[in-house]
């Protein structure tokens, strides 16, 4: 469980959050939505402990995040970044094994990683890429490999920052299936920032909508949150909401002209 209690944070003197309180339950698939500049990524950075709140407290599984050491944070929370140029040409299996670092025993031990890496590669359907170098992967492959690296961290919480938003439709759907399976079968808590409103509605148990002042504009199931009025006030967009023909999840149809 993740709990934010009266969190405040300013960025370069400019308030992003003034009083944010929120709970994400264990095993939940949680979406963070909001217009540009509403602080979605900042919220994620607070959860990653990359930045610290100026006031208030964040607790993860009961432990105050600010008190945890880096490796303890990484044992609880794994992050799937956007697929970007991966730098040095590590082979995929070694790249994924980096995720075992928080479990490294002692000062000069190497974390045992063979079976974990193999499992994560299987789950993400990347076993056939094990010996390939990461700089030769396609965008979709790299995204799955980044997910595999987060999985071997063996953390109960997974944070995603628009991890799949630049992928092609087929890869984006495959990635969504994978997240759904991880969430349902392994009980991994997943918190994701998303721009894809329809996919978030189909995927998430609950969604949070932040407005441009970093306040909670709406919080609840997609069906509760996705209203024409909310999109009007928060996003300044005129839309119609109708149910998806197969799933019944709310679907956003913007008025184009």
């Amino acid at each position: 469980m993740i709990a934010l209690d009266k969190v405040a944070f300013r960025y370069a003197g400019h308030p992003v959050f003034t009083d944010l309180s929120l709970e994400v339950h264990s095993g939940e698939m949680f979406g963070i939505l909001g217009p540009n500049g509403s602080g979605k990524t900042t919220l994620l950075k607070l959860l990653r402990a990359v930045i610290r709140p100026e006031a208030g407290e964040i607790r993860v599984e009961g432990a105050p995040l600010a008190r945890l050491r880096r490796r303890e944070v990484a044992q609880k929370i794994a992050v799937v970044p956007q697929a970007a140029a991966p730098g040095y040409p590590f082979p995929v299996d070694e790249f994924v094994a980096m995720g075992r670092y928080p479990w490294k025993p002692g000062w000069f031990g190497l974390p045992a990683s063979g079976s974990e890496v193999e499992k994560a590669l299987q789950v993400t359907d990347t076993s056939h890429l094990a010996a390939q170098r990461v700089n030769t992967l396609s965008g979709g492959e790299l995204q799955r490999v980044l997910l595999a690296r987060a999985l071997v961290q063996d953390a109960s919480i997974l944070l995603l920052d628009e991890a799949s938003s630049h992928l092609d439709l087929d890869h984006r759907l495959a990635f969504a299936h994978l997240l759904k399976a991880l969430n349902r079968e392994r009980g991994v808590t997943i918190v994701q920032v998303s721009h894809d409103l329809d996919l978030a509605a189909a995927l998430c148990d609950r969604v949070l909508v932040l407005d441009r002042q970093g306040r909670i504009a709406a919080l609840g199931t997609p069906a509760e949150v996705y209203t024409e009025e909310m999109f009007h006030t928060v996003f300044g967009a005129e839309v119609r909401i109708d149910p998806h023909p197969d799933t019944g999840a709310p679907r956003v149809c913007p008025h184009f002209f």
């Binding site: 402990a49 880096r70 490796r71 944070v73 990484a74 040095y88 980096m98 995720g99 670092y101 974390p111």
Partner: peptide, 24 residues
């Protein structure tokens, strides 16, 4: 040599290294 895994992590950038559990 003992810090070789940390060096591997640092090649991924400071933020990713921190996410993977390194006190950068």
């Amino acid at each position: 040599w003992c810090q070789a895994p940390a060096l591997d992590l640092l090649t991924q950038g400071e933020e990713t290294a921190a996410d993977l559990g390194l006190a950068v």
